[in-house]
Simulated scan of single mutants.
Amino acid sequence: MAVAQTTGGVLSVPVIDIGPFRSGGEVERDAVAAAVDGAARTVGFMQVVGHGIADRTIDAFVAAMDDFFGQDTGFKAGYRCPPGVNRGYTPPRSEALANSLGLVSAADLFEAFNVGAQARDFPGLDLPPADYPDNVWPQLRGYRDAVTDWFAEAGGVARTMTRIFGRALGLGEDYFTPVTDHSVDVLRTINYRPPPAGTRLEPEQLGMGAHTDYGIVTVLWADPVPGLQILGGDGGWHPVTPAPGALLVNLGDGLARWTNDLWISTMHRVVPPRLDGQLVRRRSAAFFHDGNVDAVISPLPTCVGPDRPARYEPVTVGEHVRAKLAGSRGGALTEGAEREVARLRGGTPG
């Protein structure tokens, strides 16, 4: 896999206005696609504005997050699901994202709550409940409505991005529709809270360990608080703070495989957030658009040639995501992540 490029020791995440793609003509759409292609080839992250999500939707969603994470431990624990079910509440120190790279690491400090696409959302397709499990909903006034609204809005941005991807790759805006029309989508709301006074942190313990995302594209809302870091080609970790009104968008391993590593699934992590040297709270919400469980990921025709042979064997989205989740949530070290590990350790196998 490729790595994010730095210039003079600086890693720059471009701000891209996708409004002209949503409402413009061919010239405007080509310009947005070219900007996304440039970011995808060099950084794998971008800051997206012009996404069209109303402030009131964001405000209601963030208030719902605060309401849930502000509840006592017993209340939240009542919505915990088994590790094999990617839904419900995750307490602090119960996951280790670096395990998804096949690496042993200290448990991460974040707490989270997951909802996602359910089998019942796609009647007639007979989708496997293990990959499309039912959601569990906290009994909090307004929570379900606010989170459902955000799920729909973030999903709309993700689908717009896949249309841009198709255009940027010379395959047409509808190219990814057949592999995303019953996508394994998950919304993970995340809370990084300062640990209680006197808590001993393990060596190199992180808010969220180093990892790449698993699917096609991630749409991230985050507080403008330090913590998120991207691994650059210089081997250093570079901080990224969201621009006002922007959503962070990054590519996942699935899209890197589809593009035969022309586009980058960027390694990132979250260090314990600090302001003026003090640990502070940080909130984020990641919408993962992973693709259909039965879709086959194999290098795209425009990304393979005599000078660039296919680097990956075909794998289904379901097989790929299950292996990654078994690492991060189930504690089983993921096999076959040699390229990701090499980037983390400073090398890049071909």
Rank of each mutant, 00 (worst) to 15 (best):
N260M: 12
I230K: 03
T266M: 05
P244I: 14
P272G: 05
D261L: 03
P273C: 11
R257F: 09
G227F: 04
V271I: 15
V249D: 04
L255D: 12
L247A: 06
A222P: 05
Q229K: 03
T266R: 03
N260K: 10
P239N: 13
P239R: 14
G227D: 03
A246F: 09
R257N: 07
N260F: 05
V240A: 05
G232C: 02
L231Y: 02
L255C: 09
V240H: 11
G252Q: 13
W263Y: 14
T266W: 01
G233D: 15
L255P: 06
G245P: 12
W258A: 10
P239V: 04
G252D: 13
P273S: 06
G252H: 14
P242M: 07
R274G: 01
A256I: 07
W258D: 08
A246E: 04
W221D: 01
P226L: 01
D234F: 06
L262P: 00
V219G: 01
L231R: 00
D234M: 01
A246V: 08
T266Q: 04
H268P: 02
L228E: 00
T266V: 14
L248V: 15
L251E: 06
G252L: 12
G235L: 02
D223S: 15
P239E: 06
G254P: 09
D234Q: 08
G235I: 08
L220N: 04
G235T: 06
D223A: 14
H238C: 07
R269N: 00
D261R: 14
L255S: 11
W237C: 13
L228H: 05
G236K: 12
P244G: 05
L255M: 15
T259S: 15
R269M: 00
D234K: 11
Q229M: 11
G233C: 03
G227A: 10
A246L: 10
A246Q: 09
D261M: 12
I230C: 09
G252E: 13
W237S: 04
L248W: 07
A256T: 15
H268A: 01
W258K: 08
D234Y: 07
V249A: 12
L255V: 12
R269Y: 11
L247I: 08
W263A: 09
I230H: 10
V219W: 14
G233M: 07
N250D: 08
R257D: 04
N250W: 06
L231K: 00
A256H: 12
L220M: 07
V249Y: 05
A243W: 11
P242N: 03
W263R: 09
T241S: 08
S265K: 02
D261E: 08
A222Q: 14
P244M: 10
L251F: 12
A243L: 08
R269P: 03
W221N: 01
G254K: 07
P272Q: 00
G227M: 00
T241E: 10
L251T: 06
G245V: 01
G235A: 13
V249C: 12
R274N: 00
P244W: 04
N250Q: 10
P273A: 06
G227T: 05
T259F: 12
D253Q: 13
P224E: 08
L275G: 03
L220W: 07
L247T: 09
L248I: 15
L262H: 14
D261I: 09
P242Q: 04
W258N: 01
T241Y: 01
M267H: 07
N250P: 06
V271M: 03
G245H: 07
P226M: 05
L248T: 15
G232V: 05
G252F: 15
P272F: 02
G245R: 05
G227E: 00
W237N: 06
L248F: 07
